[in-house]
Each structure stands twice: as structure tokens, then as C-alpha cells.
């Protein structure tokens, strides 16, 4: 008897700002759409625990996609992308997510992302509060400078290992060794996109003067950060949430910057609370 997972994968082709993307996504569950973004330089396997967690799939239609250039989502098929340096911008990132939600006909989805996925969740709350029921920025802040580094693809070093081991201690030492090494493995696969992703994360994403324009009473914003996150330390997230009208901050113990991937069992406790708050504020 084959041991099939209930998670299924599909491709959908969309056009975003003149780019034709064939996007791969994983899916499981029914009910309220919950669309999930992986971290920079990684792919949707980071959400493997959530995608098979029956407590959540019972009530949520969970979709975890690969951003173009990550995992099984190719770079654009209609562009000579190899002739220019990849640098992700906030505008393109937001446009992509909205186009993907439109293509999948998601009604009032909740958007959740971690790290650069968390930062774009804030961008969505600012730019498209009409399109999302709520956002859950994980390991996010209004500004996250310092990680747009040449080391991520220095030709004299093994970029796969630099990226994977360079983010190693973004994870908590308490997280299970297997999950930390799986996360390491994902990072070894994404080195060519990592630096371009971090252009958004550390350079183009800067909401320090915009937080007052986010209204979490219209589109709830529930932020969560782990105490072992050195890149977006808890105080950075708390300070961001405090400046958003109606913003909520949840601190996560004994976990780091990749909570859904490094320790789903700990993360799920906090996610349950975040979704409870969203439900309370939107029903």
C-alpha cells in the first residue's frame, strides 16, 4: 500500500508585470484560504508540517507556493533572465502574490509568510488591505537592514554551503536536529536566488515612515517572532506591531527565524493563537 501524503502539488501559469511565471504550489485542506510564503532562498517544503497538520487542514485551505526562481517555480519563461541580476522589489512581490491569489480564485485569503515573507505581509497590509482577510507576518519588521551581502554568491566560496550555514544560527539550538538540517538542505538549494531576495528584505522593504498608514482594524495584522531570531529580534517586531493601529505581537519561546520549518510542533501552538485572534477580529 503506497504511503501517499494528502498534500498535492500543481502548477499554475500567471503573468505579472510582463513576466510569465509557471508557479508550483502545494495544497491541502478545506475552508478558509491560508496562503503561505517561504523564506528568502528557500521553498515551500518549509511548510511541510503545517500542510499535513489535520488540526489546521480541517478548517483551512492551506496553499504553500514556490516564489519564481525557488523550488519548482522557474524564472520567467518569456525573459532572458540570465542576462540581468535578480533583485526582488516590493512592488513586484506584492503584484505577484495578488495575481496568484486571483488565479487561484481565493476569496478573502489570510496571508502568512516568514522573514522576507513576513515583511511582504506588512507590504500587503499597507497596499492591498482590500484583498486579504488578514496577514500573519512571521519574523518580520518594518525595516531589516544588513543581510544584502555579497557572500551569498561569492564565486570563490561554495555558495550553497555559505547560504545554508550562514542562516544556521537563525534557528534555535532547541529545535530538532532533523528539522534544522532539512532547513539547511533547503537553503543549499536556493543560493542563486537568495541575494536577490534579500534586496527586497534588507533594501527595498522600508516601512519606517509608513506604519501609521497600515490599519489592522481593516486588515488584521498578527505578528509573531521567535526569541532566537538575531536578524529580526523580538524587540524589532514588537516595535513594529506597536506602531500599527490595532497591530498584535506574539513572542515565541525557544524558536528562531524559520519557526514553521525548524520546529512545527512549537510553532503550531502560536499559530493556533494567531488564527484565533484573526477569527475573533473578522467574525
Amino acid at each position: 500500500m503506497a504511503r501517499h501524503s494528502p498534500v498535492t502539488g500543481r502548477y499554475v501559469t500567471i503573468e505579472v508585470d510582463g513576466n510569465e511565471y509557471k508557479v508550483f504550489y502545494l495544497h491541502n485542506g478545506t475552508g478558509q484560504p491560508l496562503i503561505c510564503q517561504h523564506t528568502a532562498g528557500a521553498h515551500n517544503h518549509q511548510w511541510r508540517g503545517l500542510l499535513e497538520d489535520e488540526e489546521f487542514t480541517r478548517d483551512y485551505n492551506i496553499i504553500a507556493y514556490d516564489l519564481p526562481r525557488h523550488g519548482k517555480s522557474d524564472p520567467p519563461h518569456n525573459k532572458e533572465w540570465w542576462k540581468e541580476e535578480y533583485r526582488l522589489t516590493a512592488e513586484h512581490y506584492v503584484n505577484f502574490i495578488v495575481k496568484l491569489c486571483d488565479a487561484l480564485e481565493l476569496k478573502d485569503p489570510i496571508f502568512m509568510g516568514s522573514s522576507f515573507g513576513g515583511n511582504v505581509a506588512l507590504q500587503l497590509a499597507l497596499r492591498r488591505p482590500d484583498r486579504f482577510k488578514a496577514v500573519i507576518p512571521v519574523e518580520a519588521a518594518d525595516h531589516a537592514p544588513g543581510f544584502f551581502l555579497d557572500w551569498w554568491r561569492h564565486p570563490h566560496a561554495n555558495a550553497a554551503q555559505v547560504c545554508a550555514s550562514g542562516v544556521w544560527d537563525l534557528m534555535a539550538p532547541q529545535s530538532p536536529e532533523m528539522d534544522r538540517w532539512l532547513t539547511w538542505h533547503y537553503y543549499s538549494q536556493g543560493s542563486e536566488a537568495f541575494k536577490g531576495d534579500l534586496y527586497f528584505y534588507s533594501v527595498d522593504h522600508d516601512l519606517r515612515e509608513e506604519l501609521q498608514n497600515i490599519d489592522a482594524r481593516r486588515c488584521p495584522v498578527v505578528m509573531m517572532t521567535g526569541i532566537y531570531d538575531y536578524l529580526t529580534p523580538p524587540e524589532a517586531t514588537e516595535n513594529t506591531a506597536r506602531q500599527i493601529r490595532g497591530g498584535v505581537y506574539i513572542e515565541m519561546e525557544d524558536i528562531g527565524h524559520f519557526p514553521m520549518s525548524e520546529n512545527h510542533e512549537v510553532f503550531r501552538v502560536y499559530l493556533r493563537e494567531a488564527l484565533r485572534i484573526v477569527k475573533e477580529r473578522t467574525s
Binding site: 544588513g146 557572500w151 561569492h154 570563490h156 566560496a157 561554495n158 554551503q161 555559505v162 545554508a164 550555514s165 550562514g166 542562516v167 544556521w168 544560527d169 537563525l170 534555535a172 539550538p173 526569541i227 532566537y228 538575531y230 536578524l231 529580534p233
Partner: peptide, 29 residues
Amino acid sequence: PMFHGIWAASFCEDLKLEGNLLVLMQNLR
């Protein structure tokens, strides 16, 4: 937290990384 690795401690504590950091990156794993 912040003492759990060389990146964390160099971003948030008093650790300084000096010298030929390319060699560090080449052997980072």
C-alpha cells in the same frame, strides 16, 4: 539567544569577525 552562533553574536553581541573572511566562508559548514 544571540549567543547561539557566530552570526547571532556578531550582529547582536560583542563578537568581531576579522582577518580573511573569505576563508571562513569557504569553510563555513
